[in-house]
């Protein structure tokens, strides 16, 4: 009995991953057609990007402050508080920046995209577009996918900047680390290609693509009921979180 249930869960999950892959191909094929809806892409960029700034900036600041505080106390045991800036920066650039931004992005923007598209389907707005000869993949799906892809690296950069500012605030302004030491150790250690490009840019691009794909897919395929939209929204958070952390391991293994 349990084995059968497990088999069903596994086969359903695999089927959904397959459907999601096919949906990605359709969205990619629709991107050239979505060029005429550039205004819609900009509108979505505002919605998923600019509207997420508050949560990203706030969380980035506090993550940086916590890191600064924790690292200062741990490093002070070894007399190495001068390395606080370095470790804060490396932690944020390589892992916490892209991963926490993506998790927050999935919770803030991903769920909103899923719920919006799910409700559009439930209220026949997607069908109405099809009947008005407007391709919903080009008008609805592709702009939201592109907006997620573009917004994530930008939000990640903002998160990293605020995180380092938070670490500086705690380490230098409150705990008395020398300002010059904080910055010079950081700039000596952080490498543009290894930490900024591989850590921030590639990872956040990959996470942006995955979260945007999952959010759009779940909304597009949500059953047209209130329960269906609610489940789809939940699935967006769960699937995105798992995908982000799993992909982070794979990308870290290959890029570092």
């Amino acid at each position: 009995m349990n084995a059968r249930v497990d088999d069903n869960v596994v086969s359903r999950s695999l089927a959904q991953i397959g459907e999601c892959g096919l949906f990605l191909l359709k969205v990619l094929a629709a991107i050239p057609r979505s060029g005429r809806y550039a205004r819609e892409t900009v509108r979505q960029l505002w919605f998923v990007g600019a509207m997420s700034l508050t949560i990203i900036m706030t969380c980035g600041l506090f993550v940086g402050m916590v890191l600064g505080l924790q690292l200062y106390h741990v490093l002070s045991i070894f007399g190495g508080t001068a390395a606080t800036g370095t470790v804060v920066a490396l932690s944020i650039y390589r892992e916490l920046g892209p991963v926490v931004t993506a998790l927050l992005f999935a919770g803030r923007a991903g769920t909103a995209v899923t719920a919006e598209i799910g409700l559009m389907r439930a209220t026949d707005q997607i069908a109405a577009m099809e009947l008005m000869a407007v391709d919903p993949l080009a008008y609805v799906a592709a702009p939201r996918f592109l907006a997620g892809l573009i917004a994530m690296p930008l939000l990640c950069c903002v998160f990293c900047a605020l995180g380092i500012f938070g670490g500086h605030l705690v380490g230098v302004s409150w705990l008395g680390i020398d300002n010059g030491t904080f910055w010079s150790n950081m700039t000596d250690t952080v490498e543009v290609w290894q930490d900024i490009v591989n850590g921030v840019i590639w990872k956040s691009l990959a996470f942006g693509a995955v979260v945007a794909l999952i959010a759009v897919f779940q909304g597009y395929t949500a059953p047209p009921t209130s329960e269906g939209v609610a489940y789809a929204t939940t699935r967006t958070v769960v699937a995105s979180s798992i995908a982000i952390l799993a992909l982070d391991f794979v990308l870290t293994a290959f890029l570092m």
Binding site: L119, M120, T123, D124, Q125, A127, A128, M129, E130, L131, M132, A133, V134
Partner: peptide, 28 residues
């Protein structure tokens, strides 16, 4: 191309909720 020549009135209206009445009618 064929659908551009067909008008369809939905049972539940299916208006685009992001747009006002004017923009809904102007959409096609």
């Amino acid at each position: 191309g064929l659908r551009e020549k067909i008008g369809y009135l939905f049972q539940n209206s299916a208006l685009l909720t992001d747009f006002d009445v004017f923009e809904n009618v102007a959409f096609p």
